[in-house]
Design a protein around this nucleic acid. Sequence first.
RNA 1: GAUUGCGUAGCUCAGUCGGUAGAGCAGCGGCCUUUUAAGCCGUAGGUCCUGGGUUCGAAUCCCAGCGCAAUCACCA
Length: 557
Amino acid sequence: MTDPKTDPAPEATAPAQTESEIVASRRAKLKRFREELGFEPYGQRVDGLLALAEARGRFSEDAHLAFDAASKEAKASGGVPADTRAVVRVAGRVVQHRDMGKLVFLFLRDATGDLQVSISKSAVAANEFELAKHADYGDILVAEGPIGRTNKGEVCVWATSVSLGAKSLAAPPEKWHGLSDPELRYRRRYVDMYANPETAKVFAMRSRIISRIRRFMDGRGFLEVETPVLQPIAGGAAARPFTTHHNALGMPLFMRIAPELYLKRCLVGGLSKVYEINRNFRNEGIDRSHNPEFTAMEVYEAFGDYGTMMELTESLIHEIAVSMIEERRAAGLRVEANGPEGGPVLPWGDLAINYAKPFVRVRFEELFRRGAGCEMRDFKAVRAKAREIGLHHEAKLDDWLVVNEVFEECAEPLIDPCRPTFVTDYPSAISPLTRPNRDDPALCGRWDIFIGGMEVGPAYTELNDPDIQLAKFTEQLKGADDEESTFRTLDEDFVEALRVGMPPAGGLGIGIDRLVMLMTDSSSIRDVILFPLLKSMAPSGSEADGGAEPSEGGKRA
RNA sequence: GAUUGCGUAGCUCAGUCGGUAGAGCAGCGGCCUUUUAAGCCGUAGGUCCUGGGUUCGAAUCCCAGCGCAAUCACCA
């Protein structure tokens, strides 16, 4: 359906039966702007532009009133009024257009906001007035003039010149409701971003959150590094990878599911404090908190442990949350600066999440006891509980996997979604990359942080014993089913790196998209990812059964 | 992958019991020098998601498919 618009139509303005009449009339207008009015519809560099919010900031009540008075006097005496109003040059997309005859009001919009431009026939050249009169919703205009006010009090640029930055050929969205169909908003994000200013605000906030994270990490002496996205072995997490292929090398490759094993190699090499803000790719289902590609931050600190990472995470998230007080006020989102215990309260959907320090800490074992009503090491009781809650495949699972399932079912719901919570000291058996505790090897140095019912990230006291690591990898591979074994391979080079010697370390992973969801009150991960993955639209003319699938796929039963 | 809901003009949405396809905005042609979703007069615009079926007759009922959303499953 968008095909006609994306086609690079030749300037011949072909009949284009499929093109809507709105597009056709805009094309005709483009021709007129160019040929009759002398404007180049795809314009030129413009220097000295002010952002619309900045231009609005130049408005002076005193200058406006003085000019107003001087104008009246000048009208009486026939002189020229003194004008001390600031002159601004601005550009933006037309989002409102009101033609009053010899006076045109229009609103321009940029990422900083909207600003009215008023164009009087008497104040601009004839071709410029025609341009303003016939400008379409979506066109990008440049205007210059003193900044003042209208009789109704609207701050505006009283244009002395108008020109065209770009002609929009596409049919615009509804000017009052904007784009509200979620599918259209995701597929045509470039429209969503200008039609719904909240969307652009969320992504501006996302950008600043990530900047702040970098500043925080850099300030603590961490080095940002970049490790491979294309990996011969996809390791570091339990997830299905995307597969790809290098032609010249004739080599199968995987898109990374985690940077972990490479970042640890950095520790081996002597970079003692590293982080990477990384895109990961996981070939799994899609829902409100999962996109096939997502952004995480992984952090490793030599001679730290999971406690080091807990302090870092708590400080980081608290600092970001505090910075959101102003951000959210500016964006018109709900926020409470001083909630209970002094923490900023950032509502997320129905939840009022309080980021006061310290965050809640609870041991896995304790939470398990409260949720399941039995000791997690009493496997008979745990299995009984598993059957009670309807875990049918319980008999096929190892003891600790049953513990994990019962925990997720019975204990995780006890976590207060309105308080960031560290669940600490997970069982070793379900944490293959984590060092078992000295005094209690059944447990290990791992925590997960939960906020708003979402798992935002784990941290570990990293395993650096090559022999134990090799044993754990090997055991994990034994459990792999047919499908898994096609992509799960033992990363021998990583084990070799551990043999060279990796310092003890704390490691951390934080889901950046989820953090941004919480900070910006977004209910879906798709609202914080600019261009989320959607299924391709079927080509409009194609037959439903087709049959001509790509040769490898298409076994559809 | 499963279940449920939705899909009508460029956009936002009505459409009753199965009986000629509707509105607002946007568009086009007019009028208007202070508008705030401007207003007034006139006008044009449809693969009712796609394909089958039932019926004298389908946007409406049935089946299949496609897309989106929510919930669940897998994962972070």
